[in-house]
Structure formats: C-alpha cells, structure tokens
Write a protein that binds this DNA or RNA. Structure first.
Lengths: 339, 339
DNA sequence: GTGAAAGCGCTAACAG
DNA sequence: CTGTTAGCGCTTTCAC
C-alpha cells in the first residue's frame, strides 16, 4: 500500500490519483489504467467496479503525467499574428473547435508580428511538447522554422506561403486577377494597387504579381501605392486613378476612410476592392467588394495536413502545398467609373 | 551512467534530457536543475560549464516533467464565448500577452455559449492542471463553477457578474445611465431599450435595470424591445420612438442595419447608442455612439485577481468584486430628434 | 484478465 | 556548493 488510506482525502483534499482508485476498487494501477484508456483487456465486472470508484473519488486523469510517460502531449500550438484581426480570430476559433474535435488541445499564442515574441512562444510550445504547430500569418523567419524542425515538430503554414513547410492558402494571384477583372468589366482602366507592411512579405509579393499580370493582360500599366501614403491625390488631375485593389480588407477599409475624409466618395468617384473577406466588410454601411478566402476550408485542410504529419513518420517528405480558390464577393464599394 | 553516451543523440535524435546535460558537463542532475532554475547555489565555473553543455546539446527543459513533479502547471485557462466577436478576441489577446508576461501559458477555449462544450473544456483544463481559469462571457452555469471549485482552481469572471466568484466588470447600470443621459440632453424623450440573447443573462438584466432607472429619473416610461424583433415600426406613427439604447454594440450595429434597410436614417431620423466599444463602431462609416468598456483594465485587473488567488491560499475568502467605470464615446449615430 | 516492475524527465529535501 | 535520494502520476512491457 503506497498510500495509507483513501480517508486521506478527507483532511488533505488532494486530487485523487490512479492509485487511490486502484486501492478503492481492489485492483492494480495497471487495471485502472486499462479501463481509463479503454484498452479492452478488462472483464466487465472489474471495469464496472473501477468506474464506480472513479465516480466516488471524483478521479480525473492527470494529463501531465500521461503526456510525460508517453513523451508527447496531445496539444497543438497555434501562432497567430494578431488575434484582434477578425480574419485570424475566426480562423483561430475554427482551429480550436476542429482540433478539440479530434482530441487535441490548442495553445494559442499571439505574436504581434514580433519576431522575439514569436521565438519565445515557440520555445514555450516546445517545452510543453506540442505535437504540431500551426502558423497563421507567419513572419517567415527562418530561425523559427529551423527550431521547429530541429525539434521534429510538424508544422503547417495556413493562409500564407512558405516553401519550407506544408502550406494551405488561397491562390493569391488568381484572387487579384478576379479583382482586376471585375473592375475592368465595370469599365475601369486606371487601376492602382495599394499594399503595405500589414501583409506578410510573400503574400504581398504574390498579390502584387497577380495584379500586375492581370493588368498586363489588358495592356494596362500597373501602379503600386504604399498603404501609408495618401491616395486621394491620385484620383484628381488628368488621367486619374478610378479604382483601387488593395492587399487586404483592412487596408481597403482604411483607404475608403482616407478617401472619404478627403472628400472623395466611394464608389461614386472611385471604386475599391479588398482581399480576405472579413466580417467587417459585409456590414451594409461598409459593403466592401472583396476577394474572399474560404476560412473554414483553410483551417480544415491545414489541420488535416498537420495531423497527417503527426501520425505518419514522414520525416523528410517534401512540403505539400494546398492551393484553394478565392472567390469574388461583389458589394457596394465598386461601380462603373464616372464617364 | 544511466544513458550510455551522448553519442546516442546521433543515431536516435531524441530530445536531450537533464541527464545528458549532467553527463556532458560532469555534474549531477540537481546541479543542472539548479542552474536551469537559477536557484542561486551554483558556482560561476560550474554554471558556465553547464550552460555550455546545454548549448551544445540544444537542451530544452521538459515542462511536462517539471509541472508533474511540482504538481501544478504554469498555465491558465481562458474560456471565451465567441472568439469571432472582436470584443472578446481583443480581451483574449490581452490576456495572453499579459499572462505570458508573468510566466503563464494560456489555454484558450472557445465555448460557443454551449454548455456541453463549456463543461468539456473545463474538464480538459483540469486534466492539464491549470492554475487558474478566466471566464469571459460565462454561461453562468452552476455546475461549471462547482467543478472548478471542487478542483480548487481559482476562477475569475471578467466582463460579467457572478456572485460565486471573483469578478471584474464595468458598472452596467452606470453605463446605461450615461447612454440615456446623453440622449436626454440631446432632447430625446421616447427612448427604447433593445436587448436579447446575445447577452449573458446577468449582464442583460443589469443593463436593462440601468436603463429603466435612468428613464424613471426623468419621469419617462421604459420600453423594452427584443433584438430579434423589427424595430422600425416603433419609429413611425404618433409618439414615435426617437432613440434606442442597445444591450451591446453588435445589437446596435444590427439595429442600424435593419433600420436603414427599412428606410429609416440614423441619426437623422433616429439615434442609436451601443455598449462595449468594439473596434467596428469606431469606423467612420459606422460611427457608433457607445458606452465603452475599458478592455485593457478589465483584463489587467482580472488577471491580477486571479494571480492573487493563485499565490495566496485564501481558500474560502469571499468573492471580490471589482467595478470599473464605463465611458461614453459620442460618435455619429446620435443627434437631436427631428423637431 | 490482471499485476509487478521499470521508468518518463524533472524537482526538492537532505546530506555531505 | 554539489550529489544522493525519493518520488510526481501515469503507461507499458512482461510474467503469471
């Protein structure tokens, strides 16, 4: 008898352990373990007796101990740039729900796009022996990925691209083409692209490339504008810009704000198209035409990829890339140009 | 020698343990443990040698093992109703940042307001031996709190009220009074209150009470409207409602949408005041006048309360309530009534 | 079908 | 200042 008596529980209300359950039901630790884990080899009578003791004692398995001996936690880490951005918040929510659906607990870390924080959080996750990590809006820093690889922890990058890890994201170029096409059909010819630091590097480049090639296809000249610069001067003078496609919805919404603050009406005087499909844009007062990303599928596929890597020991298999198609959502921020 | 040789690391790249470090630097486990935990009692020479070995081996402490032997994880759980709601997403973000600032990892759980999910998540958190739990938009279910109490895990309820646990939230009644006062001063006399299930019960009741008492103070009669009902009929006819105060910003925004869809202009024909101060409301196209909650302070105080409970064994100390003052933010959704 | 034994990687007295 | 010792609560062969 390792422990004197279950009565110990009375004066020192500590959490009951597997041993307490074993003692109370008159079996061994292993048997209790077997019933807790449903590992078959237990007679119905014993199982019932053990279950009863568990109930009486209010026994709850200690995941820390389980994970330690198994040498792996049933936990996955999610690194997200900015939880306050609804696009990511929604994805994080979906990840949490889906992950717990398959028995994983998620540890969500907000990195604020700060590399030092990103590294610190990865360190924490590694210390806690996470089984896999999802990177949402990843800074793209080599060292972070190296660290994860060295620790042999599967990684999946969701909603942006990186050639060193499994990725699932939308086809940025196709998305931008959708946007430009839409504006072209409305009659716009002077279409500028607004982008900036708010976007992760690779994504920014891909979206710009998509814009550029779509413009070229129509024999139009590209014009890139930094999101931090004022854009309203472009819409006046001769040969003014009549439409903007932006790197993402947040930039689009800010652009609309800036434009209207300068007295330029959207879409009467100028059209604006966003990218992402955040909830804010759907509001009737905002009504942002945008290229929408399938958040639900992004998370599902991302988690799927991660779980595959976790389950199969495909240590050095090459990165797999899943490309999802974005869709154009036409709302009230686009209209034909003023003749 | 428990382990044959560090060379083992070559053909079976397992994570190095404290023993590997001890062997390589020629000291005992405890000494390595001492330097890792910075527990003073180590000579400078030894410390350096150990640190060097740690570096060479790429040793990373196993938090699972540490927490198991310490019998407590440096983890706190955060239960949130809906991460997709920016109000909560922002608070969760703040909690994560602040908690990790004081050395705690957070486990964030989305409950979707579903009691079964809420219970399941609490169970998971308890199995993982969290040190404390933050409840954001708590369902108020007795059983959840009981479970937590039985496990002796400190709890703090943030942004709503519950008399069985430490709470930090704004003074809902004062907030509603602010809203009504503002409208009264603008000249409104027929002011309705819109509320609904989107709000946790206690909060809904408190806000309604605040509205009611403010109305009474001015000798005005209260009028309660369900958020799911159409409100535009109230603004026509004789003695029409000229302003609405709502249970929260989300309802306010939806109300504005519905009103305008029915051809009623805000604020020209009717004024609307929200509650919470979500980012969406600050957008120029929305410009929602609202009663704002100090999110930053809510999380700081909430976490503070929780940490106090964690640190001091004040097992049965009575719940502490922290009431924070909300502030009125006047934007473009309120104006004097049409004469 | 069940139990005994051997740890998982680490901390925390307690000696020396 | 450093090492020895004894577990934390659980899983997992391997006998019986």
């Amino acid at each position: 008898m390792t422990r004197p008596d279950p009565s110990r529980l009375h004066w020192a209300s500590q959490r009951p352990t597997i041993v307490d359950v074993a003692n109370l039901s008159g079996v061994s630790k292993s048997t209790v373990s077997n019933v807790v884990r449903n590992s078959g080899r237990v007679s119905e009578r014993t199982r019932e007796r053990v279950l009863e003791s568990i109930d009486i004692l209010g026994y709850r398995p200690n995941a820390l101990a389980r994970d330690l001996v198994r040498r792996r936690a049933s936990t996955i880490g999610v690194l997200v740039g900015d939880l306050a951005n609804t696009f990511y918040a929604e994805m994080v929510k979906l990840m949490e729900v889906q992950a717990s659906g398959v028995g994983y607990t998620t540890m969500i870390c907000n990195t604020d796009g700060d590399l030092a924080l990103e590294r610190a959080r990865v360190e924490t996750l590694l210390e806690r022996a996470v089984r896999g990590v999802v990177l949402l809006q990843f800074s793209g820093e080599r060292s972070v990925l190296d660290e994860l690889r060295a620790a042999q922890v599967p990684v999946v990058v969701v909603s942006c691209w990186d050639d060193r890890a499994d990725c699932v994201a939308v086809d940025d170029e196709a998305g931008m083409r959708l946007a430009v096409e839409h504006l072209y059909e409305l009659g716009h010819r002077r279409i500028a692209h607004v982008t900036g630091r708010l976007l992760e590097d690779t994504t920014r480049a891909a979206r710009f490339a998509g814009y550029q090639s779509a413009m070229r296809d129509h024999g139009l000249s590209a014009l890139k504008v930094d999101a931090d610069d004022s854009a309203h001067e472009l819409v006046t003078g001769s040969d003014p810009v009549t439409a903007f496609v932006t790197g993402n919805d947040v930039m689009a919404v800010r652009l609309v704000d800036a434009l209207e603050a300068a007295g330029v009406r959207v879409p009467a005087e100028v059209s604006v198209v966003g990218f992402d499909g955040i909830a804010l844009g759907a509001h009737s007062r905002i009504a942002l035409t945008t290229v929408s990303q399938p958040r639900d599928e992004l998370t599902t596929r991302g988690l799927g990829l991660l779980l595959e890597r976790i389950q199969s020991p495909s240590g050095t298999a090459p990165p797999r890339l899943v490309t999802l198609p974005p869709t154009l959502v036409v709302r009230g921020s686009t209209a034909p140009p003023r003749s």
